[in-house]
Design a protein around this nucleic acid. Structure first.
Length: 455
RNA sequence: GGCGAGUUGGCGGAGUGGUGACGCAGCGGAUUGCAAAUCCGUGUACACGAGUUCGAUUCUCGUACUCGCCUCCA
């Protein structure tokens, strides 16, 4: 039994799919004009975990997950104009970057990854439908959604009314708008901007219509889950709902709305406008493994703000290193423990699963540990190379230290032992001495070159 | 100004109407030639005020503070 916090009702609800044989989820993807910053990655990881949970629960063949790429947008146009590069070159490149970076975080690719530019016809059709039904109108080359035509529904998701919003509105005041809150479905393009022919002239779609059109095309008029960052709640998701529900003529569209909280840096939201952002690629290049980033993300519940700190990353790295060494002893593909599944099913309580992993690790239950890590997407068929223990034969070095030690036991002069030990530690080895003998274990900073000449 | 989310021990961070996770760090001990690793033990934490209740950190209301959205943003 999966429970999810539905933004629409502001409550945690038991999730009951419309059709258990085809559970459908749509998540808002990126606008592709630049490398994804770390904040962009949070929803990707959150909904990747949910996707895995749904697949585990309903069967991998009974889940359809769609996430879009917005490849028509003024930010892209600006990037093209500034760099002199072709729009398609920029979007193709950025999409591949995104997939590579998110792949590094262990995110499975969705079943559908529609690009907005491939669904222009569907968008135009939906806008025409809205106009026919009196929910939209054409004006000066634009097509606009008329919020007054759906006053009873507009603003419900984000808990505001049309009248409230107009009071403190900071929206663009355009003479062709009937109501200041009306938003653009279609806008005219100049000759140097990308455009498509439409009943309202050559132009391009507004931002929100693509998600409505693509979700309709790929998932149907009603589907189960719609997700994204909570900064999209208004206006983006509100506008999507308005478009889809009015086009469909009922209150269909997504049943459950999920929103993840923002990622923060130094207590402030990471965002492009604040300039306090860094990319996933930056972190990977600094040597922070994708699994570590994922672990840090999963250690905070998705509906709470999360501060990214170096301390968390370091802690995550050493915990994962320890876990991988244990999990390696189990076979891949095990069935997740029931308790773990129940925990994760409780509104995606990833932290709870990690807490359970600590218990498994402590009890050395390598089978349960491995299946849990796999469920969270922290482990595949193999231990990540950064965490795997180097395959080196240290027998001779162990013998050398054992010998020095047994002599010292008699002479009580440990200087030779201490200097050997120091040299081994300097080479990144962990030195374990006990009555049973000497054991050397390569640590994260192991450097075989530093062992030369020590025999 | 409007709307929303949040406030848990040194830090991070779950959860619960009644015997108060877990991780990291700290402290004490075992172990060790000394260590490391490991193991055992250890913390009278739930912003404040009022209410409901036999009993609230957990429910309700209010106050303060923090954060987010209302403009491109995940």
């Amino acid at each position: 039994m999966i429970k999810l916090h539905n933004t629409k009702t502001r409550r945690k609800e038991v999730f009951a799919p419309i059709d258990p044989d085809n559970v459908r989820m749509y998540v808002c993807g990126p606008t592709v004009y630049d490398r994804a910053h770390l904040g962009n990655a949070r929803p990707v990881v959150v909904f990747d975990v949910l996707n895995r949970l749904l697949r585990e629960t309903y069967g991998a063949d009974h889940v359809t997950y769609a996430r879009n790429f917005t490849d028509v947008d003024d930010k892209i146009n600006k990037r093209a104009a500034d760099s002199g590069r072709d729009i398609s070159v920029i979007t193709d490149e950025t999409i591949q970057w995104f997939l590579d970076d998110m792949g590094s975080l262990g995110a499975l690719e969705p079943d559908h990854m529609p690009r907005a530019t491939q669904y222009i016809d569907q968008m135009i059709a939906m806008i025409e439908k809205l106009i026919v039904k009196g929910h939209a109108y054409a004006a000066e080359g634009h097509a606009l959604f008329a919020v007054d035509s759906w006053k009873e529904g507009y603003g419900k998701l984000s808990g505001r009314s049309v009248d409230d919003m107009i009071a403190g509105a900071r929206v663009e005041v355009a003479p062709y708008k009937r109501n200041p809150m009306d938003f653009v479905l279609w806008k005219p393009s100049t000759d140097d901007q990308p455009g498509w022919d439409s009943p309202w002239g050559r132009g391009r779609p507004g931002w929100h219509i693509e998600c409505s059109a693509m979700a309709d095309e790929l998932l149907g008029k009603s589907f189960d889950i719609h997700g994204g960052g909570n900064d999209l709640m208004f206006p983006h998701h509100e506008n999507e709902i308005a478009q889809s529900c009015c086009a469909n003529g009922d209150d269909s569209f997504a049943k459950v709305w999920l929103h993840n909280e923002m990622l923060q840096v130094e207590g402030k939201k990471m965002s492009k406008s604040l300039g306090n952002f860094f990319t996933v690629r930056d972190l990977l290049e600094q040597g922070v493994p994708g699994e570590v980033i994922r672990f840090v993300f999963l250690s905070t519940h998705y509906r709470k703000p999360m501060d990214w700190t170096d301390k968390k990353a370091k802690e995550a790295q050493s915990i994962l290193r320890k876990w991988y060494a244990q999990a390696e002893q189990a076979l891949p593909g095990g069935t997740p423990d029931n308790y773990v599944l129940r925990t994760l099913a409780d509104d995606i309580n990833t932290h709870g699963v990690l807490a359970e992993c600590h218990q498994y690790s402590h009890a050395d239950d390598v089978v349960a540990l491995r299946s849990s890590l796999e469920l969270l997407g922290l482990m595949g068929d193999e231990v990540p190379s950064w965490a795997s223990v180097p395959d080196v034969d240290l027998t001779l070095y162990e013998g050398r230290l054992t010998e020095a030690r047994s002599i010292a036991m008699v002479t009580k002069d440990f200087s030779q032992v201490d200097s050997l030990k120091a040299a081994y530690i300097a080479a990144g080895l962990e030195v374990r001495m006990s009555k049973a003998g000497v054991e050397l274990v390569p640590g994260p900073d192991f450097d075989a070159a530093k062992l030369e000449g020590l025999l």
